[in-house]
């Protein structure tokens, strides 16, 4: 028992040293770090829209209709003379709020169902998984459309609740499957048997012993579905079933009269499109890097 003190921590994921974790992440995943910077700036734009944006996104100025990008209007103006750059900044807020809440909702419900499904097994597992199969049978966009159409519009703090639910539901079965697979391997670990042998309750075993060990796949799915949710929200808004005018939203900016004027004013679709692509790209990249970083098999 003499050499004990010399054993240094070996797992780099050790939560005790947050600064070391960030440095490790940047060293190992430079692209991931870059995507994180994009996400961070998007978040800042979303939170501080009032201060960051040069114009009021709702201000209609008929003197400046369909202006090309210039020093006054970096991304030009739309058919009502509203500043597109400002609308993109405010759109980041809409996109983030909806994708964050719906992705969190969908991933969390999916994860809980996945762990429960793996832990209990038997008929509970069968029923949950068959139901997930039914949800998976619908293409994402179709499922979301059905949910939006079926739910009544409800707005809370200026957010469309039905839109969040519509985006969250298609996420549930996808996360559920991945988390179930991870939980199945943890289900047979001796420490879960040890917990059962000690007579702990099922909920304690699920939340205290299994859930922390599926955090890695959960986080990865969560960030990856942030991107999906942004895309889905944009698609729904584009189809007129999501965010409604005049609220600034990226998908919405691509639809409506943007379609009528895109020949004369391509910037009307170019910049919101870029914003969507960049955000989706950043979240996907970040999710990938996070997966590689958290997976010990990728370590030397």
């Amino acid at each position: 028992m003499t050499a004990i003190t010399s054993s240094a921590p070996t797992a780099p994921t050790s939560a005790a040293r947050p600064r070391g974790v960030i440095r490790d992440f940047i060293n190992q995943q430079p692209l991931g770090a870059l995507s994180f910077v994009v996400i961070l700036s998007m978040t800042i734009a979303g939170i501080f829209s009032e201060w960051v944006s040069p114009y009021d996104p709702l201000h209609i100025d008929f003197a400046a209709i369909l202006q090309p990008p210039s020093w006054e209007h970096w991304a030009g103006t739309d058919a009502y003379g509203r500043d597109i750059f400002s609308r993109i900044i405010y759109g980041a807020r809409t996109a983030l709020v909806i994708s964050l809440t719906s992705s969190f909702l969908g991933s969390t419900i999916g994860a809980i169902l996945g762990i429960a499904s793996a832990y209990f097994g038997g008929w509970i597992d069968d029923w949950i998984q068959r139901f997930m199969d039914i949800l998976l049978a619908f293409p994402i966009i179709v499922l979301a459309l059905v949910v939006v159409a079926a739910l009544k519009t409800a707005v809370l703090f200026g957010i469309d609740i039905n839109l969040i639910v519509a985006v969250a539901i298609p996420i549930i079965p996808r996360v559920c499957r991945v988390v179930r697979a991870a939980a199945l391997t943890i289900r047979v670990m001796p420490y879960v048997d040890a917990a059962r042998a000690a007579g702990y309750s099922d909920s304690r075993i699920i939340f205290r012993h299994m859930a922390p060990n599926v955090v890695a796949p959960y986080l990865i799915m969560f960030t990856a579905f942030m991107a999906q949710a942004i895309l889905l929200e944009a698609s729904l808004s584009f189809l007129g079933l999501g965010v409604t005018e005049p609220t600034p939203a990226w998908g919405l900016m691509l639809s409506g009269n943007a379609a009528d004027f895109y020949r004369e004013a391509p910037w009307m679709i170019l910049f919101p499109g870029l914003a969507i692509s960049l955000a989706v790209f950043a979240f996907n990249l970040f999710g990938d890097s996070l997966r590689d970083y958290l997976d010990p098999r990728f370590k030397v």
Binding site: M189, P190, Y191, D193, A194, A195, H209, P212, N213
Partner: peptide, 9 residues
């Protein structure tokens, strides 16, 4: 348990 690596959370 047998395996001290997997029997502790």
């Amino acid at each position: 348990f047998q395996d001290p690596y997997s029997s502790l959370n």
